[in-house]
């Protein structure tokens, strides 16, 4: 534990990469990262001392499936919209987000796309699916109307919709949540993104549809990096290469999915996964330990988890722990022996 937090994150990439038992890359695949976030802090513009995200730092590489977990209010959606560049105007972002080595503001919009938990809210209710999909490809590629229709139909076939022309005539309210989510994914694919952000894309779907959407994402991941927000630890464990645990705006643990699930190091992660039988493979909803997440306005110096932690030390009250650890798993906690 002689490394500082920034070393802990940079060091793995400088070393030879270890591979996990499932043949997955240890922390990230080789090559330049697609997404790289350093020291990202998001505060309220009106009250800069209220931090919604604090010193968030991680990288995503091509083909990687990164699961972000954390209880409601921990800042997952704020992180997603900040990366998308559509964060609310009430928020201020400090720190750096780079996509393929370039600053967010210099990056072409189509390099990143996002899908959401309730797709029907993110589709215009009074325009049909065909209009919205055609518009997206037309604006991006400057296609003619006819070419755009063909491209739209191809995209719908790509996401497993077999009657694209029928679907394009429909309105969002005439389709199921799963179908709308496929349409959202088709729109995202239209942008040929390097990074796909998925904010709980399957939480509102039934188990069968959920599996279909996950399989679809699995099929698409080779061309991009996927940041997948979920409350479902089973899904995180089964589908992702790495898991990041967000607590009160801070990443408290990042590591190879199997390690985080089997040997969680942070007391909060441990509490989460203690409720999941590790080998049953049965998906479980996120189970939070007793107590509650401190509101962004009530966060103080020291560890944010201190009020709920049984292994708390004196130092925890006044010094905020930073991420450190072995290449495959980093954790922000003062008491790793607890």
């Amino acid at each position: 534990m002689d490394q500082t937090s920034s070393h802990a994150l940079e060091a793995p990439y400088a070393r030879t990469l270890e591979h996990g038992s499932a043949g997955r890359p240890a922390i990230a695949a080789g090559g330049a990262p697609i997404l790289s976030i350093t020291g990202l802090t998001v505060v309220l513009a009106e009250q800069p001392e209220t931090r919604l995200l604090e010193a968030v730092q991680f990288e995503l590489r091509k083909g990687e499936f990164f699961a972000l977990v954390g209880e409601s209010g921990s800042g997952k959606s704020v992180l997603c919209s900040t990366i998308m560049g559509v964060a609310s105007s009430e928020l201020r972002c400090l720190g750096d987000i780079h996509i393929e080595g370039r600053r967010l503001s210099d990056v072409d919009r189509r390099q990143r796309a996002m899908i959401y938990q309730q797709p029907s809210l993110y589709l215009n209710p009074v325009r049909n699916i065909g209009f919205q999909l055609r518009e997206t490809v037309q604006v991006l590629d400057g296609l003619s109307k006819k070419e755009a229709s063909e491209r739209a139909a191809d995209l719908l076939r790509d996401v497993g919709i077999n009657d694209p022309n029928e679907t394009m005539r429909k309105y969002p309210h005439e389709m199921s949540g799963g179908m709308n989510q496929r349409v959202m994914i088709a729109m995202a694919l239209a942008m040929k993104p390097k990074l796909l952000i998925a904010d709980e894309p399957t939480s509102a779907l039934d188990v069968t549809t959920q599996k279909q959407i996950l399989d679809l994402l699995e099929r698409l991941r080779s061309d991009m990096a996927i940041l997948f927000v979920t409350h479902d630890l089973g899904v995180a464990l089964q589908r992702s290469d790495r898991i990041g645990v967000l607590y009160a705006g801070q990443l408290v643990e990042i590591g190879r999915a199997d390690l985080v699930a089997r040997t969680p190091l942070h007391p909060y992660t441990r509490a989460l996964f203690s409720a999941v039988p590790p080998l049953s493979g049965r998906p479980r909803r996120l189970h939070s330990p007793a107590g509650s997440l401190p509101e962004p306005t009530q966060r103080q110096a020291g560890c944010n988890f201190a009020s709920r932690c049984s292994g708390r030390l004196d130092i925890c009250r006044h010094t905020r722990p930073t991420l450190q650890g072995i290449p495959q798993q980093v954790v922000a906690c003062h008491n790793l022996e607890a």
Binding site: V86, M114, Y116, L123, V139
Partner: peptide
């Protein structure tokens, strides 16, 4: 849906 349209560029 307007937010999503902005995000699509």
């Amino acid at each position: 849906y307007v937010l999503a349209a902005f995000a699509r560029g």
